[in-house]
Simulated scan of single mutants.
Amino acid sequence: MRLATWNVNSLNVRLPQVLQWLAENPVDVLALQELKLDQDKFPQAEIEAAGYRAVWYGQKTYNGVALLARAPLSLEDAVAGIPGYDDPQRRVIAATVNGVRVIGAYCVNGESVESDKYAYKLEWYARLHDYLAAELGQHPDTVLMGDFNIAPDDRDVYDPVAWEGKVLCSRPERDAFAGLLGLGLADAFRLFNQDDKQYSWWDYRAAMFRRNLGLRIDHILLSAPLSARATGCVIDKAPRKWERPSDHAPVVVTLAD
């Protein structure tokens, strides 16, 4: 079973790339973030024509998340948003696929540590933590994947000194990420790859991708039973080289049966 996450930074713009990537990489489940589409504008027909079923939680201009499952797999018991949290921003969607509870998330960016959005980010992460704890209690086989907007440690940042204390790298954010791991989850990428300079996001400006000046902020977190099944996790940088790319690259994990 192969699962992937990708912040596409507008599905309207990036739909041809998503379809191309799925044709070349027929993963079983794909979590998408930053759809930037109203709920009724999701390209369901195109996704289904590509052999995938979908559930989505759209929002115009910003946010929006979706889960795609390769037919004949189905998306069961889908839930949009964090239950009990009245959040106007559409950032979370969950469903069960082939016995695995899959949670896709577009986590809050936070803008800057001085911003009200940063306080919202920390509150949002606390809500995510509690939600995930409840899900793990019901579903031992759980994966949380998406754009976390957190670089967990200095290996995940091209210039740790320049980024120290800034949003995406601040200590409270990293503590929030560590809190998720404390629930018994594992960072799938770090189960296999301990090298430096491995990133999933590069700013569009200043040739950051060409110079490999990026951050690893897109993650796949696996519960213990799924970690035991994991056989590999990679960042696929190929789509970042395409014309009009997303600023993020897909991350893919493979689980043994």
Rank of each mutant, 00 (worst) to 15 (best):
A4E: 07
V8G: 06
N9R: 07
L22F: 11
N25L: 01
E34P: 05
F42C: 03
Q44R: 15
V55E: 12
V55Y: 03
W56H: 14
Y57N: 14
Y62L: 13
L67W: 02
A69R: 03
A78C: 09
V79F: 02
G81M: 04
P83V: 11
D87A: 00
P88D: 07
R90V: 12
R90M: 04
I103P: 00
G104P: 14
V113L: 04
V113R: 06
Y118W: 04
A119C: 00
A119R: 15
W124Q: 00
A126Y: 01
A126E: 15
A126N: 02
H129Q: 13
H129G: 10
D130F: 04
E135N: 03
H139D: 02
T142C: 12
M145D: 02
D147Y: 13
D147G: 10
F148K: 06
I150T: 13
A151I: 10
P152I: 07
P152E: 03
D154S: 10
A162S: 09
E164I: 00
L168D: 05
L168V: 15
S170T: 05
R171C: 00
A178V: 00
A178Q: 09
L181M: 12
F189V: 14
F209D: 04
R211Q: 13
R211M: 10
N212M: 13
L215H: 12
R216N: 08
P225F: 11
I235W: 04
P239K: 10
A249V: 08
V251C: 01
V251K: 02
